[in-house]
């Protein structure tokens, strides 16, 4: 990796909202390049480590998955507050993706098909479902988008290189972009 602004590491946070974790797995598909990545990137809150709350501002946030329930919205807003640059990663975050296939079906129907009348799980510990699935940029401002289901590892690597160098994602070569 080259073109760093300084020797300080970029602080990176990641999350999966209503995603399948495929985008995170695709990130791990950078394989041995992760050994180089950890020299220039420090992970903050992320499912791959045990940091469960933000304690500081992060340089870059990667969000996988759209917003399906109230908890997703809370986490997304938390990410917006704590990340200088916030990127939507993958089809679900950008278009709603597979979970958005439920858009247009009344939430009551989704529940009634799963649980007998009067037994729909309801507890303060489990979040409420939104009326439909929302792509992330409909909830908070998003600074960049990486398409794909999942985005190819080479695309994520290219994007990380740009971000570490302080460049914009508009410089992506696009040869690694796929929509499926």
């Amino acid at each position: 990796m080259s073109g760093q602004r300084s020797n300080k590491k970029i602080i990176l946070a990641t999350t999966s909202l209503a995603g399948c974790f495929g985008c995170h797995m695709s990130l791990l598909d950078i394989d041995e390049r992760i050994l180089k990545l950890v020299e220039v990137v420090e992970f903050d809150k992320s499912p791959i480590d045990d940091i469960k709350e933000f304690s500081r501002m992060c340089d870059v946030g990667l969000v996988e998955g759209g917003c399906c329930n109230s908890e997703n919205v809370r986490v997304l807003r938390d990410f917006r507050r704590h990340c200088k640059i916030l990127i939507s990663v993958g089809a679900c975050a950008i278009t709603g993706g597979l979970p958005a296939m439920r858009n247009g079906i009344p939430v009551s129907e989704l529940f009634e098909a799963a649980f007998p009348a009067g037994s729909i799980p309801n507890d303060e510990e489990i979040p409420m479902l939104l009326d439909r699935v929302y792509p992330c940029h409909e909830i908070v401002k998003i600074d960049g988008f990486l398409p794909g289901c999942p985005p190819r590892a080479d695309l994520l690597w290219e994007a990380l290189n740009l971000l570490v160098a302080g460049k914009s994602l508009s410089e992506l070569s696009f040869e690694n972009v796929r929509y499926d």
């Binding site: 089809a91 950008i94 278009t95 597979l98 988008f145 696009f174 972009v177 929509y179 499926d180």
Partner: peptide, 25 residues
């Protein structure tokens, strides 16, 4: 247009145009 599960993906002219015009969102 759910590219991930659409069987036309890869043969789709709308998708191909979107790629050519570098559409991300």
């Amino acid at each position: 247009h759910m590219c991930p599960s659409c069987e036309k993906s890869g043969n789709c002219e709308l998708q191909a145009l979107a790629h050519r015009y570098r559409i991300v969102v």
